[in-house]
């Protein structure tokens, strides 16, 4: 068992609302400065910058996780994480066809840049990535599980796009073992009020859209990592998320 400081909800400049300085290389670099060990890149409805993020993290000694913040048809945000990059990229290809077909207007929403791991712009996504997909929550969960990934409701303590704000509760039938909070101070009151949160695992990630929002080394997880490999850490982290080994 070792202690890993994490931030599992970070947007790059591929998310239209993500700052243009949120390049994969800068995010990994910021993680080092902040003393993080594990970081997940979770852009809106895309994993497109994850390959560059993996390379940048490898250089910086950070364990990367390929992820996505999926918007369901109900406008609810789910954090989806995968233990392997290529699986995440297959998931990405599938989701792409299910995003509403609206063209991005960079003047309103911001640019959506694909980057390499050395801050070079590779291209720009034309489809607006922050609109919803046509997956409802149940379908989205099944899809993520089908790819061997895990998912959980994002920032349930926030009014915009949080599951509780939208649905009024977290339906037990979704079977979420873990939920994400923006602010750890809200955990106790939510545990009392919402039965799905009562015994759930809790992750506190930043949902950073700017470099300065990325978590500092304050939220950590104990992960079994023997015999050590970053792949094993990823695998066991995902296992812990599904099995409520996170408190």
């Amino acid at each position: 068992m070792n202690k890993y400081f994490y931030d599992l909800h970070i947007h790059s400049c591929l998310s239209p609302c993500g700052d243009n300085d949120m390049t994969p290389a800068n995010i990994a670099g910021m993680g080092v400065i902040n003393g993080l060990n594990i970081m997940a890149l979770t852009d809106h409805n895309t994993c497109g910058n994850c390959p560059a993020f993996f390379k940048a993290c490898k250089r910086h000694g950070i364990i990367p996780i390929a992820g996505m913040e999926l918007t369901t048809a109900e406008d609810i945000h789910l954090v989806c994480l995968f233990d392997e990059l290529d699986v995440a990229m297959s998931f990405d290809s599938e989701v792409k066809n299910h995003i509403m077909d609206i063209k991005n207007r960079p003047d309103i929403f911001g640019h959506q840049y694909y980057m390499d791991d050395e801050d070079k712009i590779l291209g720009e996504e034309e489809k607006l990535l922050i609109s919803a997909t046509d997956y409802n929550v149940e379908t989205a969960i099944a899809l993520v599980h089908g790819y061997g990934g895990v998912c959980y409701p994002a920032h349930i303590d926030r009014t915009s796009n949080g599951m509780i704000a939208t649905l009024g509760d977290i339906p037990l039938e979704y079977g979420f073992a873990t939920v994400e909070f923006n602010n750890r101070e809200n955990v106790e009151s939510y545990r009392e009020k919402y039965s799905a949160v009562k015994n759930a695992g809790v992750l506190c990630s930043s949902d950073a859209h700017y470099l300065w929002d990325i978590n500092e080394a304050k939220h950590s997880l104990e992960i079994d990592d023997e015999p050590y490999s970053s792949a094993l850490v990823r695998k066991n982290l995902l296992f812990n998320i599904i099995n409520i080994k996170i408190k």
Binding site: T71, A73, E74, D75, M100, I102, L128, S131, A132, T166
Partner: peptide, 8 residues
């Protein structure tokens, strides 16, 4: 009130 819905 669902912004994505309105958007489309």
């Amino acid at each position: 009130d669902l912004l994505s819905w309105v958007m489309g």
